[in-house]
Computed example of a mutant assay.
Amino acid sequence: MGVSDEKKTQVLIADDHPFLRLGIKSMIDATPDMHCCGEAESVDETMQAVEQLKPDVLVLDLCLGDRDGIELIKSIKAIAPDLPILILSQLDETLYAERALRSGAHGYIMKEHATDDVLDGIKTIIEGDLFVSKRVAALAVKRMVETRGETEGRDVDALSDRELQVFRLLGAGKGTRDIADSLGLSFKTIETYRENIKHKLSLPDATALVHCATEWVQGQICLAPDALDEAPEEPKKKKSAKKK
């Protein structure tokens, strides 16, 4: 007799790519001790599902709509402080993994490795351990022992979470007023962040800042993952948490 769904590890998947959600759901439901309890494709759905479904673990896309992923992790931990979160992302793990973990996530997987690592990642964080790639682990050790020289992405890595958020929005083509409205901050506050970013990145003026941000974002854009693309796409049906 098989284990009932209620006794299995309940996994909530939050990602706005139907291909990826369907593929990961299939992998989870094919695992004897796991069950996909629900899916979400937006920030609002994710917050609602976390509160209503009370999953044992959350598999979360770091680029979910327009909401900054790092801030979203913090919001989720505010309502579910003990919920293990496994991040799936197209964003460079050498820059974002450490930030995600500091914000409350328990693991970080690049989407290109989702098929190989997601089940191991879920099992690892459920047991209370962190799950990152060998590359990220090696970089963390290198940063601890390195006394001179620069590591990859050092300049941008010096930005605070909010500064990085502003920098990314600048690179996406948003102006200061748009960024202020999007983040719920004042125009003057965003101007201050811009000045801080210019100083930290040694940029001479606003034009150089926007150019630098645009060039950087071009290498960080969230794209639909190729992983699991053999699964048929399911049409988006509704905008509320989908219990399975």
Rank of each mutant, 00 (worst) to 15 (best):
Q52A: 13
T9R: 00
A40M: 11
K7Q: 13
R162A: 15
E51N: 09
A180I: 07
K7C: 09
V50I: 03
S240P: 05
S133V: 02
I85Y: 00
L183Q: 11
A137D: 12
H199A: 15
S240T: 15
S240D: 15
K237F: 13
P225M: 03
M1R: 15
V3G: 09
V43R: 05
K77Q: 09
A213N: 04
K237L: 15
F19I: 12
T31R: 08
G153H: 08
L201P: 04
Q52S: 12
G184R: 08
F187V: 15
A224L: 01
M110T: 15
A30R: 15
K236D: 02
A105P: 03
A208H: 07
A208I: 04
P232V: 08
S75K: 10
A114N: 04
K239F: 14
P84T: 03
E195C: 09
F167H: 11
I73M: 02
P235F: 05
L22C: 10
A206C: 05
P204W: 12
E233S: 15
A172E: 14
D15K: 03
L119A: 07
G65D: 02
I190A: 08
L164C: 12
Q10I: 02
K142I: 04
V217G: 02
M47T: 06
W216M: 03
V118H: 06
G219Q: 13
D157G: 11
D68R: 01
I13H: 02
P225A: 05
L159Q: 04
P81K: 05
C222M: 07
I87L: 08
K242V: 07
I190N: 06
M34R: 06
